[in-house]
Each structure stands twice: as structure tokens, then as C-alpha cells.
């Protein structure tokens, strides 16, 4: 129900609420409910035993830390790409813009195959990296590379539309008032794009947590060392142990959901802060 304080000027509350609830319920919540019901079939001790086994904990560590590193890489790279693509005009800009979505268009298995071929000791990159002691394939670095590659578009595409809409007259005004480029960026641009940037990072992180196809190609899949949670889930499914698979999936989902919830709250708080400051 709408909050009493908000002025209900704009139309469409009922319609959009109806469409959203119908869709969210049918497409997202109902399947997740089915998973939770599967989980309900097992007792709490059994649930705890599965999600806290040594192998599972090792898998969380490798998955979460790799997703974290991948997200940092994508935050920096994504911001750079979005900035360059929206702010500068240079030959090949359109092509670069088009290429950003490539990692999404490739089936993840192909992405994994491409990466593992590039980083093989005879591969285009591996032949230069391996002699210098940089081994990517079948190490955590490979997992990070696969996660980062498959989620490149998130930050770029989240920041890009907002950056395009940043009020340039505001920047021009600041410039005439003697503000430096850096001041303009930190005071005007950064606060505007921050919610989108965080949103992109979170999606990138969440996607990395669940990434399977590309990672299994390059990870080595050695239990306790380079075995990610998604692979463990896949193994449990192959053992026809649906409950265990659902339990592990639930952990991934819960972490992703809490991250989303926290950052969305943060973004909302930040937006209000900016609005108040404006």
C-alpha cells in the first residue's frame, strides 16, 4: 500500500503494481518457493551438516573471494569503459561499445573454452605469462578471470545510461566557477552515478557467485582447492541428492539476496542524501 505521506500525483500505481506482482510471483517467487519446499523436506541438523561440511566451506571461500576480486576488477574496468564510451569521441568508439556485450553473447562454456585456450602454456597469453611464473589455468586466478570476463557488461551498462544523462550544464557552470576536473567528478558526477555503479557491481558480484559454465573449464575443479559452490551443487544433483543441492543453492542465494538488500538500502539512503543536498 502507498505510504500516506507520498503525494499520489502520478498515475499507474495499480497497473504497474499488478503487472509487477503477477510477474514476480509467477516467474521468480513460485520457482524459488518450490526450492524452499524441497528444503523443508530435510531437518535442520541435516541442513546444517550439508552446508557446513569442510568441503562446502572450502568451496564458499574460493567462490566468494574470487567473486569479490572479479567484482573489484569489473568495477574499475567498467567505470573506465563507461566513462570513455560516453564522454569521448574517438575512432572505433562504436565498435568498442558493441564489444562490451560480447561476454554475455557467448555461451559461458565457449567463454570458458576461449579463456582456457588463451591461457594455456602454448596459448596466445599463456606463452608469455607462464615463463614469468603467472599460471592462470587451473588456479584461483583462472576462476577470477572467468568470473570477471562473464560479468564485464554489468557495471558498464549500469553506469552508461546515467552518465549520458548527467546534466552537462551543471558541469559547465562548475567549470566557469573555477572547479577542477577532479572536483567536478567527485562532487557532481560521482554522486550521480554512484547508485548505478553500486548496482552494477552488485549484479556483477552476484552473477560471479553463480557462474558455472565458464568457471569449470578453467578452474581445475580439485575439491577443496579450486572447486566452486556451483560445481558442488552440480555434483549433488548428479548424485540425485536434490535436498543437498537445494541446501547449497540456498546458501548462495541467501548471500546474494542479503548483498542485494544491503546495497539497495545503501543506494536508497545515498539517493535521499543527494536529493537533500541538492
Amino acid at each position: 500500500m502507498p505510504n500516506q505521506r507520498s503525494k499520489h500525483l502520478l498515475p499507474g500505481f495499480g497497473l504497474t503494481m499488478g503487472v509487477s506482482l503477477f510477474y514476480v510471483t509467477l516467474v521468480i517467487l513460485l520457482p524459488i518457493l518450490a526450492m524452499l519446499l524441497k528444503l523443508a523436506g530435510m531437518g535442520l541438523p541435516e541442513f546444517w551438516r550439508i552446508i557446513s561440511s569442510r568441503r562446502a566451506i572450502a568451496a564458499y571461500q574460493i567462490t566468494f573471494s574470487s567473486a569479490f576480486y572479479a567484482t573489484i576488477i569489473n568495477g574499475v574496468v567498467g567505470l573506465l569503459l563507461a566513462w570513455v564510451l560516453t564522454r569521448y569521441r574517438f575512432p572505433g568508439r562504436r565498435i568498442l561499445d558493441a564489444l562490451v556485450d560480447l561476454p554475455f553473447a557467448l555461451p559461458t562454456a565457449v567463454a570458458g573454452l576461449v579463456l582456457v585456450t588463451l591461457f594455456a602454456d602454448t596459448g596466445w597469453y599463456g606463452q608469455f605469462l607462464e615463463p614469468n611464473g603467472l599460471k592462470i589455468n587451473y588456479t584461483q586466478a583462472g576462476i577470477v578471470a572467468a568470473m570477471a570476463f562473464t560479468s564485464i557488461p554489468f557495471v558498464v551498462r549500469a553506469v552508461q545510461p546515467v552518465l549520458e544523462e548527467v546534466d552537462e550544464s551543471l558541469e559547465a557552470a562548475a567549470e566557469t566557477l573555477g572547479a577542477s576536473r577532479w572536483q567536478i567528478f567527485t562532487r557532481i558526477i560521482w554522486p550521480t552515478i554512484l547508485p548505478a555503479f553500486i548496482g552494477g557491481c552488485v549484479l556483477s558480484f552476484a552473477r560471479s557467485l553463480g557462474e558455472f559454465g565458464a568457471v569449470v573449464f578453467i578452474a581445475g575443479n580439485i575439491p577443496g582447492v579450486t572447486e566452486i559452490v556451483s560445481l558442488l551443487i552440480f555434483i549433488r544433483l548428479d548424485e540425485y541428492n536434490y535436498e543437498a543441492a537445494a541446501a547449497l543453492a540456498f546458501v548462495l542465494l541467501a548471500v546474494a539476496f542479503l548483498t542485494l538488500l544491503a546495497t539497495n538500502a545503501l543506494a536508497a539512503w545515498q539517493t535521499r542524501y543527494v536529493e537533500r543536498a541538492a
Binding site: T117, Y138, V216, I222, F234
Partner: peptide, 21 residues
């Protein structure tokens, strides 16, 4: 002695043949 555990048999063959592992 196994450096990588591919998820399927063909993946292992490819690792051995194409990537020289």
C-alpha cells in the same frame, strides 16, 4: 597426479589433445 578434473569425458580429451595437458 591429475592437474584438472574436467566435468565430462570429451572435455578431458580436449584438455589432453588441444591443450597438451
Amino acid at each position: 597426479n591429475v592437474p584438472v578434473f574436467e566435468t565430462g569425458g570429451r572435455g578431458a580429451t580436449t584438455a589432453f589433445a588441444e591443450r597438451g595437458l
